[in-house]
């Protein structure tokens, strides 16, 4: 009893640790050891040690696919940090500063979150398709017919379009977090700054930003993790192969393609090592995310245990 009394945090941590370990951590690690087997998920499992890892890094084709997918995943992450996070902060700040129409902004910006991805893609097709899209019609009507393009399929722009859709649908999430963080700022702090004559932007830079610094850093890490793990837009826009020449391929899609392959009405063959190699990719992905997270947490929170 005494031992626990000295460590009151255990009372707060224990329920979370127990349930989270059972339902989240254990299944992941139970599955991770499949990366040491050659297995297609149905047939016999053959233990191969770290051969899958060796194969992944030495097989030229697999390695190329992985580096290409990684490149795209990093691009999504970089674009998100450079553009989306500042936009989220500004959106949140406008809403926080009680601009007219703030509830409307909040609901509208967040609403794409609720719409199923295939419907979003379908509506974007109706609007931006090259042959039938509304947007091109508008351009024609406005006399800019020569600018008409198949906006959603401009080659080489694929990954930017995927990023655009992810951001369009997801921008509200970060915004809500920033808004929450801003609401935590002590009212007196803002008020006194206002009375001292600090303008709209000055208040943002000198009071708001320092207060939401941690939230921003956390969201950078979350964006990294999401950049590495999101794949549904790439899948819908480019199919299981990630578009022509893998133009919209991302890490998780690479995992998904290896582990579960293509399921199509014509049938096809599942590879002898689908689940084994898929799990190997997931583990490599995990290590990349884990190491970056650890570095960030060690830096950001370096003072906290002192």
């Amino acid at each position: 009893m005494n031992w626990i009394k000295k460590r009151p945090y255990l009372l707060f941590l224990t329920p979370g640790i127990i349930l989270y370990s059972i339902f989240v951590i254990y299944p992941i690690f139970a599955a991770a050891n499949i990366s040491l087997y050659k297995w297609n998920g149905i047939g016999k499992r053959v233990f191969v040690g770290i051969n899958n890892y060796i194969e992944l890094f030495t097989n030229q084709d697999l390695f190329n696919q992985m580096t290409n997918a990684l490149k795209n995943s990093f691009l999504i992450f970089a674009l998100t940090v450079i553009f989306v996070i500042p936009i989220q902060i500004i959106m949140a700040y406008i809403i926080y500063s009680k601009a007219r129409g703030k509830s409307f902004f909040q609901a509208a910006i967040f609403s794409p979150q609720f719409i199923a991805t295939p419907i979003i893609v379908f509506i974007f097709t109706l609007i931006f398709d090259g042959n039938i899209g509304l947007f091109n019609k508008l351009l024609e009507v406005a006399g800019f017919g020569h600018l008409a393009k198949p906006w959603l399929g401009i080659p080489k722009m694929g990954i930017y379009i995927v990023w655009g859709m992810i951001s369009w649908a997801g921008v509200g999430v970060g915004m809500i977090y920033f808004l929450g963080a801003m609401k935590m700022i002590a009212f007196e702090e803002m008020e006194s700054a206002y009375l001292e004559g600090a303008g709209f932007w000055k208040r943002l830079f000198y009071i708001v930003l320092p207060n939401i610094k941690m939230t921003a850093l956390n969201l950078v890490l979350i964006s990294y993790i999401i950049g590495m793990t999101i794949f549904d837009y790439s899948y819908i826009l480019g199919g299981i192969s990630g578009g022509i020449k893998g133009s919209v391929d991302v890490m998780s899609l690479f995992f998904y393609r290896m582990a579960f392959g293509d399921s199509n009405p014509l049938g096809g063959v599942i590879s002898d090592n689908s689940i084994g190699m898929g799990t190997t990719i997931a583990c490599v992905l995990f290590f990349m995310v884990f190491i970056v997270s650890m570095v960030q947490i060690l830096i950001v929170y370096r003072k906290e245990e002192e």
Partner: peptide, 26 residues
């Protein structure tokens, strides 16, 4: 403490499809 922080982040780092069979068995 930092370890606990990272421990609680791990859930985000694996695709959910991966751990599905063990959790199904549970």
């Amino acid at each position: 403490k930092k370890f606990v922080r990272i421990f609680f982040l791990i859930g985000l780092m694996f695709p959910v499809q991966l751990g599905i069979v063990p959790i199904f068995l549970i």
